[in-house]
C-alpha cells in the first residue's frame, strides 16, 4: 500500500510540473488547448493527492505499524477517532494535508476565475502548481509519510497525549485552511499582475478568497486558544508562543488587506499597498509553516539537522523574490491617480488602521525571530518574553479599537464637522460614562478602564448605525424591527456583516482585557474537607480518587464550589500519568459563567490524600469564545453574495450619501 501512496505523490508532483509548464506555454503561445490540459492536470493532482491521503488514512485506521508514520503517531491504546487527527499530528502528514488543501483551493479558485476573468486562468494554474510542486517535493523526498519499517513494532508510539483533545482535532485543519487559503488570493493577484490587463491588480477578485482564509485563520486562533485554555492547564489562552505568533502575523496582515481593499474598491487608492499586503500575507503563511515545521524555534542547531528548514527558507526566498519582482514590474500601473483629499476621511482612517496592523505584525515578527537572530549572531539565545509583546501590542490594540469606532462612521473623501458631531456625540458620551462608571466602581487599572470605555464607544457607534438603518427601513415601510433588521442586513451584507464582525472582535477585546487585568489566582495545599476562598468563590476539597484506563493512571481531585452559602455543584480536576512514559496531561476543573470562570488545576498530591490545587478566577473569558461565534455569523453574512452592488459608488458627493442608507 505504501507503494501506492508514494506513486500517487510522485505522479502528483510530475503533473504539477506539467501543469506549470503547460500553463506558461499556453499563455505565452496563446494555446487554449495547452491551458485546458494544464487545468485537467490540476484536477488530477488533487485526485492523486486524495488517493495518497486515503492510503495514509487507511494505514492509520488499520494501525499498520509497517508505516513509519503510523508507528510514530498511533498506538493501540489511542481512541480510534484520534487516528484521524494523527493524519496531521506529524510533520509528514501535515505537509500532505497542506498540499491536499491547496489543491482544493486551486480547483475552487480556477472555477471562480474562469467564470469571472478567464484570461487569468493560466496564471492561477501556474502559481498554484508552483506552490503545490514545493510541497509535493517535500512529501516525496525529505518528509515522506510513506516510509516503511523493515521490522514493524508491535505497538506504535502514539501522539503526544496533549494533542488528544477535540479542540486540537479541529485546530490544525482550521488553521491550515487559513494558511493555505492565502495562496488563492496570492495566485489571483500574481496572475492579474503578470497579465497586466486587470487595472486593480486583481485585488478585488482576491478579496473574497482572502476573507475566507482570514476567517479560517481567525477560527484556528480561537480553537488554539481554547485548547491552550482547557488542556495545557496554565490558566491562560495566549502565551505569545512562536507557534501562535506564526498564525497571528498573517492574520494581522490579512486583516489590514480586508480594510485597504475597500479603499481600493471605493476610491481606487492604495493599489500598490494592497497588492503588497497580499504578497506579505502569503509570505507570512509560508513563514509560519516554516517556523512550526523546521525546528528553528527550539534551536538553530535542530534547524540545520533537517534539510526541511533549508528547503522552506529557499522556497520562501524564491517565492518572495519572484512576487516582489512582479510587483515592482507593475508598480507604476498600480499607482493611484488621485490622492487623499482630507486628513479626516474614511480612507485616511483605513490608512492609519493599516499602518497600525502592519506595525503590530512587524513587532510580533521581530519578537518571534529575535531568539533565532541572536543565536545566529552571538551564539547566545536571547528570548523575548510576553512582556515585550504586551507592551508593544496593547497600546496599538487600543488605537485600533478607537479606529474601529471612528472609521466606519467617517464619510469617504471628507468628513464635515457637523457629521462628526452628529455621529460621535452619543457613542463618545456613552464610552466616557462607562469609563467614569468603572472608576466610580473602584476599578483602578487605567488601561482596562480605557479599553472598556473604548469598547463602549465602538459598541455605541455600531448600535447607532443599526438604529439609523432600521429607522430608515421602517420609514420605507419595512414593518417591525425584526423585518427591518433583516432587510437592512440583507440589503448590504458586507457592510452590516462587517459591523457584526467588529462586534465579535469587541467581545474578544473585552474578554482579553477582563481576564488579563482582573484575574486572581491562589495555590493551596488542602486536606479532604478543607476549603479555600478564591475571589468570591469558596471551594471545598472532598478528596482524591484514582482510576486507570487507556494506558494511563488518572488522579482526580473532587472539588465543590460555593458562593456564600449557595452550592454551585461539584468540579473535578485531574491529571493523567501515562504508563511507560513521562507524558502527563491535565484535565482542568472549569465552571464558566458570563461574569467569570472558576478554573482549578491539580498541581500535586501526597500519599496521605492531600492535594495541591492551583485556583484561578478569570473574568469575562466566556466572551472571547462568544466573540468567535459572533465573528462567524458576521463573516458568513459578509461572504454571502450580494444581490446588488453594495455601498457608495465612486463619484457620489459626500453629503448625498446617508450613513446606514441602502
Amino acid at each position: 500500500m505504501a507503494d501506492l501512496g508514494r506513486f500517487s505523490l510522485f505522479g502528483a508532483l510530475v503533473l504539477a510540473c506539467y501543469a506549470l509548464i503547460a500553463a506558461v506555454l499556453g499563455a505565452r503561445f496563446r494555446r487554449p488547448d495547452l491551458v485546458a490540459s494544464a487545468r485537467r492536470a490540476v484536477s488530477m493532482v488533487a485526485l492523486l493527492e486524495g488517493l495518497a491521503a486515503c492510503v495514509l488514512m487507511s494505514a492509520l485506521f488499520r494501525r499498520d505499524y509497517a508505516f513509519a508514520y503510523v508507528a510514530a503517531h498511533v498506538r493501540d491504546a489511542q481512541a480510534g477517532w484520534y487516528n484521524l487527527t494523527s493524519f496531521w499530528g506529524g510533520m509528514e502528514g501535515s505537509l500532505l494535508l497542506w498540499a491536499l488543501i491547496l489543491s482544493g483551493y486551486s480547483l475552487a479558485a480556477l472555477r471562480s476565475v474562469s467564470q469571472e476573468r478567464p484570461r487569468l486562468v493560466p496564471g492561477v494554474v501556474a502559481v498554484c502548481s508552483a506552490v503545490s510542486m514545493f510541497f509535493l517535493l517535500m512529501v516525496t523526498t525529505v518528509a515522506s509519510p510513506f516510509e516503511t519499517l523493515p521490522f514493524p513494532p508491535a505497538d506504535g508510539r502514539g501522539m503526544n497525549p496533549l494533542l488528544l483533545n477535540p479542540w486540537m482535532a479541529i485546530h490544525p485543519p482550521t488553521l491550515y485552511l487559513g494558511f493555505v487559503g492565502m495562496t488563492a488570493p496570492f495566485a489571483v493577484v500574481m496572475a492579474a499582475l503578470v497579465d497586466g490587463a486587470v487595472e486593480d491588480g486583481g485585488v478585488l477578485l482576491a478579496r473574497r478568497w482572502m476573507l475566507w482564509a482570514w476567517y479560517c485563520l481567525s477560527m484556528g486562533l480561537v480553537f488554539g486558544a481554547k485548547w491552550s485554555y482547557v488542556v495545557l492547564g496554565w490558566g491562560g489562552y495566549w502565551a505569545w508562543d512562536p507557534v501562535e505568533n506564526a498564525a497571528f502575523m498573517p492574520w494581522l496582515v490579512s486583516t489590514a488587506f480586508l480594510h485597504s481593499v475597500m479603499v481600493q474598491e471605493r476610491r481606487a487608492l492604495l493599489g500598490q499597498w494592497t497588492v503588497l499586503l497580499v504578497v506579505l500575507a502569503f509570505g507570512l503563511s509560508i513563514f509560519g509553516t516554516f517556523l512550526t515545521r523546521s525546528g528553528v524555534l527550539s534551536s538553530i542547531h535542530s534547524f540545520t539537522q533537517s534539510p526541511l528548514g533549508a528547503y522552506f527558507l529557499g522556497f520562501l526566498s524564491l517565492a518572495m523574490l519572484a512576487a516582489f519582482g512582479v510587483v515592482a514590474w507593475r508598480w507604476e500601473t498600480l499607482r493611484s491617480r488621485s490622492g487623499l483629499e482630507a486628513a479626516l476621511s474614511r480612507e485616511s482612517a483605513f490608512l492609519f488602521n493599516n499602518v497600525i496592523f502592519v506595525t503590530i505584525a512587524f513587532s510580533v515578527f521581530l519578537g518571534t525571530v529575535f531568539p533565532v537572530i541572536s543565536e545566529a549572531l552571538t551564539g547566545r539565545r536571547v528570548n523575548v518574553g510576553p512582556p515585550f509583546f504586551d507592551h508593544v501590542v496593547a497600546p496599538l490594540g487600543l488605537l485600533l479599537l478607537l479606529l474601529m469606532g471612528v472609521g466606519p462612521l467617517l464619510a469617504w473623501r471628507r468628513a464635515s464637522a457637523a457629521s462628526l458631531k452628529r455621529d460621535f456625540l452619543a457613542p463618545g458620551a456613552g464610552g466616557v460614562l462607562l469609563g467614569l462608571g468603572l472608576l466610580a466602581a473602584g476599578v483602578r487599572a487605567p488601561g482596562a478602564v480605557l479599553a472598556f470605555a473604548l469598547c463602549g464607544f465602538v459598541a455605541g457607534t455600531i448600535a447607532l448605525e443599526f438604529a439609523r438603518g432600521i429607522r430608515l427601513r421602517r420609514a420605507h415601510g419595512d414593518g417591525g424591527v425584526v423585518a427591518a433588521v433583516t432587510a437592512l442586513v440583507a440589503g448590504n451584507r458586507r457592510r452590516y456583516g462587517g459591523y457584526i464582525v467588529h462586534l465579535g472582535i469587541l467581545l474578544v477585546f473585552a474578554g482579553v482585557t477582563g481576564s488579563s487585568v482582573f484575574g486572581t489566582q491562589r495555590v493551596a495545599t488542602l486536606r479532604p474537607g478543607d476549603a479555600v476562598q478564591v475571589g468570591h468563590y469558596r471551594v471545598r476539597f472532598d478528596g482524591l480518587s484514582e482510576t486507570t484506563g487507556r494506558g494511563a493512571l488518572v488522579v482526580t481531585a473532587r472539588l465543590r464550589a460555593f458562593v456564600g452559602d449557595r452550592d454551585l455543584g461539584s468540579l473535578q480536576a485531574s491529571r493523567s500519568l501515562f504508563l511507560g512514559s513521562t507524558d502527563t496531561t491535565t484535565d482542568v476543573a472549569l465552571r464558566s459563567t458570563p461574569l467569570d470562570d472558576l478554573y482549578a488545576v491539580l498541581a500535586g498530591w501526597t500519599r496521605d490524600g492531600d492535594a495541591t490545587v492551583r485556583f484561578l478566577v478569570n473574568p469575562l473569558v466566556m466572551w472571547i469564545w462568544a466573540g468567535g461565534v459572533v465573528l462567524t455569523a458576521g463573516t458568513l453574512i459578509a461572504m454571502l453574495p450580494a444581490r446588488r452592488r453594495a455601498g457608495v459608488p465612486v463619484g457620489v458627493p459626500v453629503e448625498a450619501w446617508t450613513p446606514g442608507g441602502p
Partner: peptide, 30 residues
C-alpha cells in the same frame, strides 16, 4: 497486482490530461 493498478491509473490520468491536445484543431477549447 499493485504495479498493474498503478499502471492503469497512470495511463488513465495521462490520457485524460492530454486529451485537449489531441482534439482536432477546430474542436479545441478556446
Amino acid at each position: 497486482m499493485m504495479v498493474g493498478v498503478m499502471l492503469v491509473i497512470a495511463a488513465a490520468v495521462a490520457a485524460w490530461v492530454l486529451a485537449p491536445l489531441r482534439a482536432p484543431k477546430e474542436a479545441r477549447p478556446r
